[in-house]
């Protein structure tokens, strides 16, 4: 998709691997079976976490990068 010119952001729990194989914009997700969720949290908190992750992804899409770059999600919400 990037070769076609569409910027993408990959949300994954394995950001190091993603970086090594050349994904350009990467957001570190929670865990492999639930990259944008955390079943150990109460629903409200889980949803807030998911929102922070996706917001980080949107920020990554608006950031110029020269090489595979990992964006870290802030620990607690804005």
């Amino acid at each position: 998709m990037e070769r076609a010119g569409i910027p993408g952001v990959l949300i994954t729990a394995l950001p190091d691997l993603a970086q090594r194989v050349g994904a350009n914009r990467i957001v570190a997700g929670v865990r492999m079976p639930h990259p944008v969720g955390d079943p150990s949290l109460p629903l409200e908190k889980e949803r807030a976490l998911r929102r922070r992750i996706v917001e980080t992804a949107l920020k990554a899409l608006q950031t110029e990068v020269g090489e595979p770059t990992v964006f870290i999600v802030a620990k607690s919400g804005p």
Binding site: V9, I11, T12, A18
Partner: peptide
């Protein structure tokens, strides 16, 4: 698959992709 999906996305004017991986 990426190439085929990209063709569809371009045709629909998509400018950015959020992709989740496991």
């Amino acid at each position: 698959y990426g190439k085929e999906i990209a063709t569809e996305l371009l045709a629909q004017g998509v400018q950015a992709v959020v992709l989740t991986g496991t």
